[in-house]
Structures are given as C-alpha cells and as structure tokens.
Amino acid sequence: MKRYSGWTLASPGTLLVVVFLIFPVLATIATTFMTPNGIFAPYISFFGSGFRRTVLWRTIQISFITTVIALAIGFLTAYVVSRAPGWLKSILIIAAVFPLLTGVVVRSFAWMIILGKNGILNSTLVSLGLIGEPMTMLYTQGAVIVAMVYLFVPLMILTLVGVLESIPDDLIQASASLGAKPSATFRQVIFPLAVPGLIVGAVLVFTGSFTAYATPQLLGGESQMVMGTLMYQQAMVIFDWVSASTIAAIMVVITIVVVLLMTRIARRLNPMAV
C-alpha cells in the first residue's frame, strides 16, 4: 500500500521527465546514427570539418579559462565573505545573489555597453590618453570570457561560502595554536577541505559555459562561434537538423563525462571521507 502511494505521488513528474525530456533527447541523438550515409557519418563530417573542430576547440578553451578564473576569484572572495561579520556578510551575499537572479541577456548586454567601440572602457582609455583610438573589444574571445566570468562568479561565490562556512572554526584555531602561519592554515587546512566545493563549482561553471548560447552570441557573434551558437545556427538558420542533433549529442556526452569524472575526483579527494 505504501509502496503504491509512493509511486503514485512521484508518477506525474516521472512521466513528464520521461516523455518530454528523456525520450526527445534520446530520439534526437538516435537520429544521428540513422542517416543514409552510414552509422557514424554525421560525426565523421563534424570532426572532418576544420571549421567545426575549431569551434569545438574554442568552446573547450573558453569554458576552461572561464572555469579557472571563476574558481580563483570565487574562492578568494568566498573566503573573505565567509569570515566577514554578520551584517556585512548579508550585504555581500545580497550583492552576489542579485546579479545571479538577473537574466543572462541583461548581464551580457551590460558588457556590450562596456566593451563596445564607443563603449565606456574605450572612451575612458582614450580620454586618459592610454590608447590613441578605440580598440575592438567586442566580438573577441576575451569579451566572451570576461562576460562568462561575470556570469559565473556569483554562482561560485555562493557555492563556496556555504562550503567554507561549514569548516569548523576549531580546526583553524587548532592549526593556529600549533604554530601554523595564516597562509599555511589557508593552504593546508582550509583549501583541502574546500576541494569538494571547488569541484562542484567547477562542474557548474564548465558545463554552463560549454553549453552557453546568449553570452557568446551577444559578445562573440559570428567570429567567435561556439558549440551553442553553432548548434542554433544549424538548427534554426540552415535547418540542417542532423548536424544540429550531432552537435547536441556531442554536448550531452561532454557534459556527462565532465560531471562523472569530476564527481569521481571529488570522492577521491574528499579528506572527510578518508
């Protein structure tokens, strides 16, 4: 009786996910293996194209650099936030939550205003005499990375503040009373304990950047095409749905591989589990 009602309560959600998520996604991936040109034809043509390999490589590069920068900024900032007095901590958390709740279009748009040819950064640099004429900043890889870092730093801070707060103060005091310098405590006590949180953050940022659409579209445009924008172009501009499905399949596989790999590493590195 109880087993029955458990299934009953979970069934509408289960049905929704199976019918509208698992089935369509699997069907999309399946079509890439059922083209008349042979089972792996779409993949051979994807990896055979120099342009597409460049797009894939660029996406990996952008996601990797974004993840590393967001990790560094997020970790140091979260450390300070987690040690701040109560009232200040609340303010800082609000200041991190607010951008996070603001949409990706708005946040990318902000960087278009800043980095544009007549944007704030260019006009400031020109008026300071640092550069002679406005530089091209928009539609470069750097612009995409800056905006992506901006997108993901709040998420990283909020993920890590929770992790750093849960480190018992006793451990830090013990380390200090045994003669460790603050920098040694930071490296040998706090950092290892934060590793699982850092890995969760890295997974969120990497997969998020790898599958992003709006930010690379607005700040990178055609010249900085990434997997997300390429997939959209194939699906909605060129209407080559096999090609779009192939890109979708590659994105799904890479996302799952990254998630599985990182959770395995997290499990191995977790000092609390040993």
């Binding site: 089935f23 999309t28 499905s245 996302t255």
Partner: peptide
Amino acid sequence: IQLPGWLSTLFVLPVLVPELVLGFALLKNF
C-alpha cells in the same frame, strides 16, 4: 527505502541535460 535510487536521479536530469539540447529536442520531437 521503497522507491528505487534512480528515481531521484531522474528528477535532476533536466539539470544535467544542456538547456539548448532540451529546447532543440522538444522542438524536433514534439
């Protein structure tokens, strides 16, 4: 205890599947 473990994984799947892929898959197959 009564429900299988994969059921809770199923409910986090929408996070694992890239949104763009879900959007395209829904367009194509629905």
